[in-house]
Design a protein around this nucleic acid. Sequence first.
DNA 1: TTTATTCTTGCAAACGCTTACAGAAATGAT
DNA 2: ATCATTTCTGTAAGCGTTTGCAAGAATAAA
Lengths: 361, 361
Amino acid sequence: MSKKLEQPTQTLKTPRGRRPNGNGLSSTTIMDVAREAGVSYATVSRVVNNKEYVKSDTRERVLKAITSLGYVVNQQARSLAGGRSYAVGLLVRDLGSSYMGEIVRGIDESLSAAQYNLMLYTTHRRKIKERIYVNNLIQGMTDGLLLVLPENLEAYLETLDQTNFPYVLIDHQGLDERTPVVITTNWQGGYDATRYLIELGHRRIGFLTGMMDMRSSQDRLSGYQAALRDHGLPADPQLVYEGTYYQPEGYAGAQSLLRLPEPPTAIFASNDVMAFGVMEAVRDAGLRIPSDISVIGFDDIAQASQVAPPLTTVAQPLEQLGREAVRMLLARINNPEQPIARTILPTTLIIRQSCDVPRNV
Amino acid sequence: MSKKLEQPTQTLKTPRGRRPNGNGLSSTTIMDVAREAGVSYATVSRVVNNKEYVKSDTRERVLKAITSLGYVVNQQARSLAGGRSYAVGLLVRDLGSSYMGEIVRGIDESLSAAQYNLMLYTTHRRKIKERIYVNNLIQGMTDGLLLVLPENLEAYLETLDQTNFPYVLIDHQGLDERTPVVITTNWQGGYDATRYLIELGHRRIGFLTGMMDMRSSQDRLSGYQAALRDHGLPADPQLVYEGTYYQPEGYAGAQSLLRLPEPPTAIFASNDVMAFGVMEAVRDAGLRIPSDISVIGFDDIAQASQVAPPLTTVAQPLEQLGREAVRMLLARINNPEQPIARTILPTTLIIRQSCDVPRNV
DNA sequence: TTTATTCTTGCAAACGCTTACAGAAATGAT
DNA sequence: ATCATTTCTGTAAGCGTTTGCAAGAATAAA
């Protein structure tokens, strides 16, 4: 190849002091690629961003230069110039539960497929933090926001809406019907599990609620109550124990239910973790699962199939919840006119071995 | 206040089209603050960055303008100009285990205290991803990198070192003694737990290893072996079962150990999750814990104290691991000359109720 | 061939900030 | 009061991109 490409006369002001990249190496820029490929930096930008109006052999030449130089676009600069940061913020309470783990897995899989970065913020249940984070995030750091089980929506949802900043709530109903959310059929899940127990022959079914300030907990409870009603069974308030979604509360709740003068023959816990507590309490009371007491959970976290006996439970498509939320968010980012949507994903009853027909039927 | 401050003649070129902030609102910039406070934007920058040489009443005036306008610095611009992004990257395999949860908690607590942002990357054990992420991250996105249990170090550690990019490994030994790491005393933990069992009177102690390609697993095993040796006990290879750190493997391992012609009287699992599997298997074999078989774990995750009986285990200061890593990383970021350090945090034996003297002594 | 269109490409400005540099103001020493 | 310092503040350049605009190249239409 002897056909020398003449260097375009680009404004090559001598840099003030070639500031190295924060660390040692001063990185290759769009300019370097342009020089290497013998085009202007604007063209390189067009190639990088897959814009139309680039001759295909020019494009190839640039692409080759990019790989040979190992060029990686500088997101900060891109964001500054173009108004896109290619990052989304994720606000969660806490990590470390498989509930979160699965949701986050769905989120970051979809996000990385779309070449987006993830900024993580954990509130550790400090409500004030939510607002602080949100304020920083919408200030250009990210293009959108994903909120898993937010606790303090009132503090910033209005701000988000006013600035028309893209966001999606996960596993939270939102403040009204105009909030974009991804949720599951909690009511139906509660209903299905209860009906299953009823159809097995159970007449007294204990219920352990989650935190009752969460809409999902309320829905599971009403699903349970509706199923009882539909099958002509009384809704004995003694059978409903108010829990918190944590394991010890499952243990305590089961103990309290078992001590009842007329104890239940089945216990429905509003999540798997509490169901594990229930199983322990049942065992400690010298009873067997499922022959003496049936136990059913909610969520279908990975452990549910690993305990003994494997737990019958209502599966929530957690990973899908995350994926769906990302899909909605990106749609909204790419087209702000996009009408806001609410996605409701179905729960499924997973029948394993923790339930059986009641003993004394 | 009638003392009108004359407007400094700042280059106020008419903007090309007042690009709104990606969303609706065009955000307040350093310029707006400058105008409001009647100073130049450089001064505002000095105030924001807490630089010296600003008269205190000027500083106050600027501060007031900042709050009244609700100004938030644009990180991308700051990063572009100054070479600091105030973000660190966190590379993990997976979320959703309480092991990770606790480490991440420590990390993001320290990080947010230092006003740093966290970019999260999960590899889901796809080794290729590690390198891709690392390459992007060091390209200006972040000021430093935290790697929890990396699996593919060889692929990029050299790059990191060459560019002198700040990073710290968590719970990984690194390739040589010159890698900055935060680890725990795995060997000692293995030793302590084993010695405890020996001192209770156990002579045949089963051991379930973790994934043996991890140095921590090897260390726990050698701690176990050393304790046996130091107490004059034989190291029966039949008593060592190679596991994976996952619960089903704990179940399987315990089953296999219990089927031995001369089964152990105690089982030491290399992590708590496997220990839970062990407990299940022991129970399913019709044996009691701790009267028939003692069980001991490693990690001290939250659940360890909640199972029945509460699990005796070797606590790793996971949250502290995270905090320490951040401390080291920020030190390195703020002073690249900082000599690389290796921090070793102590494990502690937590005695609960899953161990007892052996039955047939 | 000439002219009108449609493609390609380069130039320059702008994104919001940091920081070197230099001039102005204030302070201290003489 | 004068000069040397020191403290304070403003100007300008530059960080690495994106993108409107306009000019040149290629193609289609006449």
